[in-house]
Design a protein around this nucleic acid. Structure first.
Ligand SMILES: [Mn+2]
Ligand SMILES: [Mn+2]
Ligand SMILES: [Zn+2]
Ligand SMILES: [Zn+2]
Lengths: 148, 148
DNA sequence: TTCGAGATGCGACTGATTTGCAACTGAATC
DNA sequence: GATTCAGTTGCAAATCAGTCGCATCTCGAA
């Protein structure tokens, strides 16, 4: 289930004005890219794609906007097992969290939704009296094809 | 359950010779530190502590040894929600995996062992036919004291 | 002991992210 | 529509984490 399009376009922009966050040309481009991305983007990819919509977008604006989106809980940050370098990957946060699996051999990234995962988070909230804001389960290993 | 001392001292060294990995003064110091650490260490802290045991230890040797330990599955790498900067944290891998929770307000790190977590990993292995080598569940949120 | 593969320190380097600052701009107000 | 200014931007430089090349050293097998 690769980044399902369960969101209406312009949703991020809508959330921005709901929260009284100022909209700018550059942010519009960046949000557009995040919203329509079909895979996990790192800052450099995000910049390249945003520049296509608005060539004035600068690297630092991308980073600043990523921070903003993180602070507002609108995106998730991933390591994806650092299969390519030390950077981070980002994805639009949807209603339901999912797990990420990265194949250490072929580099494929898989996603997985699980009731047990939700249950586990429930357990943490209850047993540890911990109010969860963001959660990240990343698994490294070997995919079906690479396992044999 | 903060980094339980369920391992006998010198265990990492023993594992090194079992696997025919060469032992050096510097590695001895680094392993010693990893083994006796009572909290999650980043590379800089690890270096400082290792230097106390063997002042000749260099930063690059610390990084190289961390890579070695990772490759052999003897340590886990953590982000701890990047509460302090972009660097990584390391801890000795014990028999049983645990979850990490980081309080976004007070910065406290908590650990939690859960059967449901083990079950979840079983589900991933079975349903996704994915052979898990390493897994990392990190949660950000508010601890009991900071929640009120 | 000898000896070579492998490990080390050092310093330079890369890649990722952040920052200070002067100039600009969105959107609220008139 | 013009005015206003707090918030945002691009740019260049800085910082931070991690890596690398290479000459030198050292572990440990023979
Ligand atoms: Mn990371
Ligand atoms: Mn831990
Ligand atoms: Zn694979
Ligand atoms: Zn707290």
């Amino acid at each position: 289930m690769p980044l399902p399009q369960t969101e209406m376009p312009g949703r991020l922009q809508a959330l921005f004005s709901e929260r009284g966050i100022r909209m700018t040309q550059q942010r519009r481009a960046i949000l557009q890219v995040m919203e329509t991305a079909t895979k996990h983007l790192d800052a450099a990819h995000l910049l390249r794609k945003a520049k296509r919509l608005d060539p004035s977008v600068d690297r630092s604006t991308v980073y600043r906007t990523l921070q903003l989106l993180k602070r507002h809980g609108l995106i998730d940050e991933l390591d994806l097992m650092h299969i390519h370098g030390e950077g981070h990957y980002y994805e639009r946060k949807l209603n339901r969290d999912h797990i990420h699996m990265a194949c250490l051999r072929c580099g494929k990234i898989m996603e997985f939704v699980s009731d047990i995962f939700d249950k586990l988070k429930g357990q943490v909230e209850k047993d540890c009296r911990f109010r969860i804001v963001v959660s990240r389960l990343e698994i490294g290993g070997y995919c079906a094809s690479c396992s044999k």
